[in-house]
Amino acid sequence: MSEPVNLNRFRKAKAKSAAKTQASENRVKFGLTKAQKKLEAALRDKAASNLDSAKRDPD
């Protein structure tokens, strides 16, 4: 007779491997390079400074 198997262990291992593959797909799909992040931050800062410079002072 063979050894009994724990089905919960196999179920959890399968879910963990599926989560790892999903995570790697998301890293490729949504990941940005460092240069892209710096560019976006610079554009965001420039837009904020342009908005602040266009505001009128309340009298």
Results as ranks from 00 to 15, higher is better:
residue 6 N to V: 09
residue 40 E to R: 07
residue 1 M to Q: 02
residue 39 L to C: 02
residue 12 K to Q: 15
residue 54 A to M: 06
residue 49 S to Q: 14
residue 46 K to W: 04
residue 29 K to P: 00
residue 7 L to F: 15
residue 2 S to D: 02
residue 36 Q to D: 12
residue 54 A to H: 02
residue 17 S to C: 02
residue 41 A to K: 11
residue 7 L to H: 11
residue 31 G to Q: 00
residue 43 L to P: 00
residue 35 A to D: 13
residue 10 F to L: 13
residue 24 S to N: 08
residue 36 Q to R: 10
residue 35 A to G: 13
residue 9 R to C: 09
residue 36 Q to P: 07
residue 16 K to F: 09
residue 7 L to P: 09
residue 25 E to A: 12
residue 5 V to D: 07
residue 39 L to V: 05
residue 10 F to P: 04
residue 3 E to W: 08
residue 41 A to P: 05
residue 18 A to T: 08
residue 51 L to D: 02
residue 28 V to K: 15
residue 50 N to D: 10
residue 43 L to V: 05
residue 31 G to T: 00
residue 7 L to S: 15
residue 1 M to W: 03
residue 11 R to L: 11
residue 7 L to N: 14
residue 12 K to Y: 01
residue 50 N to C: 05
residue 7 L to V: 14
residue 23 A to K: 05
residue 55 K to S: 00
residue 14 K to T: 11
residue 26 N to G: 05
residue 10 F to D: 11
residue 59 D to N: 01
residue 26 N to I: 10
residue 35 A to T: 12
residue 49 S to M: 14
residue 7 L to M: 10
residue 17 S to L: 11
residue 59 D to A: 03
residue 53 S to Y: 02
residue 21 T to D: 12
residue 55 K to G: 00
residue 54 A to G: 05
residue 49 S to L: 12
residue 8 N to P: 02
residue 48 A to E: 08
residue 56 R to N: 08
residue 36 Q to M: 12
residue 10 F to Y: 13
residue 54 A to Q: 04
residue 20 K to V: 09
residue 56 R to G: 08
residue 40 E to I: 06
residue 6 N to T: 00
residue 5 V to E: 10
residue 9 R to L: 09
residue 13 A to T: 03
residue 30 F to Y: 15
residue 48 A to C: 03
residue 9 R to Q: 12
residue 57 D to N: 03
residue 44 R to D: 13
residue 56 R to S: 09
residue 32 L to W: 10
residue 41 A to I: 13
residue 16 K to C: 06
residue 40 E to H: 01
residue 53 S to V: 00
residue 16 K to D: 09
residue 11 R to H: 06
residue 17 S to T: 07
residue 17 S to N: 09
residue 25 E to N: 10
residue 38 K to T: 09
